[in-house]
Design a protein around this nucleic acid. Structure first.
Lengths: 206, 206
DNA sequence: GTCTATACCCCGATAGAC
DNA sequence: GTCTATCGGGGTATAGAC
């Protein structure tokens, strides 16, 4: 197993920025590392190193230890992804075009990270499914929030409530699955195709 | 973090069956445990215990250690999932109905495992992305195989080759994403809705 | 709030008897 | 092929000075 030194620009810029408060640096480092390595694969010492904080600081802000840290990391990834989603959807008036634009955004993010930065919460959520209710429910909240953002966008253009509800589910599910497939295959093709099909599906309901 | 005793019927029946050869018991235990806990979250000692094999036996069959074991586990999950997919798709002549039937199969599997047995390879693949090329390429092979099974089914019913290629991508991506969303949300709703939308999408190409 | 030191445990991997 | 013992290292978490 190759060890990731985690020295790339995105990591450093976010987690090591000395202007950020300590707690914030810790959360960002935890979020990024768990996104890449999962819950069990990420050590608290690694997080404290990456965040340029001491182990004592980590336990000062997160007395609940690794689990509390994971919940904070998922919440952070949740809001980060939600913000990107809102921005991309807001850039186009037609919801079909908007979703297509977001698939391109995801593909770009994956490629520029050399296919290592996928969904910010999936890896953490999957590895702890069924063993940590706090982490699981934080992940469930994230999915619900993302669906709601898509739902609102679809409703704006006059799609019926029940149709928008179902479409929001499939849009998020397909985006997640296509990002996963793209990461595993190291190719943007799954995302490109998913964008095309989601746009077609949405248009059928307009 | 609650510790999973791993005493449920599915695990025991597969991994502890004394009739199975030792190597096979080890692979099955590794596959199931990594499916649930990921690569880093699963210990070799836990695998040997679950498989009722000694640590020496594990290293006898897998001298490459944990990584070699993970590749074998992914291959096992790959073929297992492929078999389920072929069976479900073969149960209906209309490909739209066939995919719908498979979403129900996935939902049943998730619910009966109390939402812990999701995709057999995703958790392992995600936690090791970018750090273990062997595991990553085994996972990429699995996705390609599953897409090909869907592709063949679509071609049988006269869908054009390029359309079938794209549809196969989206079917697998959406199934993966919906299973993930269902697992995280502990609800079959994402899979139910995905089945409906995928059937609609496929029908549009018939 | 930050830091160092450390207790205690389990990890992957190996050695060598049988 | 199977088994036990063990090595070296790293894990989470805590204690207590500053």
């Amino acid at each position: 197993m190759k060890k990731t030194p985690a020295t790339d620009a995105k990591q450093s810029a976010a987690a090591q920025d000395p202007v950020l408060a300590t707690r914030e640096r810790i959360v960002r480092a935890a979020s990024r590392l768990m996104q890449r390595q999962g819950y069990a694969g990420t050590g608290i010492k690694q997080i404290s190193l990456e965040a340029q904080a001491t182990l004592g600081s980590v336990y000062h802000f997160f007395p609940g230890g690794k689990q509390e840290l994971a919940v904070a990391a998922i919440r952070h990834g949740d809001l980060e992804f939600a913000e990107e989603l809102r921005t991309a959807l807001g850039s186009e008036t037609d919801p079909a075009d908007a979703v297509l634009a977001f698939t391109r955004h995801l593909a770009t993010g994956l490629r520029t990270s050399d296919w290592i930065d996928g969904c910010p919460i999936t890896t953490t959520a999957l590895g702890t499914a069924g063993s940590s209710p706090d982490i699981q429910s934080a992940a469930a909240e994230a999915f619900a929030r993302w669906r709601e953002i898509v739902f609102d966008k679809l409703r704006e253009t006059g799609i019926a409530e029940t149709d928008a509800h179902d479409l929001a589910h499939t849009v998020i599910s397909t985006l997640e699955g296509a990002e996963l497939a793209a990461q595993v295959s190291r190719s943007s093709e799954p995302l490109d195709i998913a964008g095309k099909h989601l746009a077609r599906l949405i248009t059928a309901y307009l």
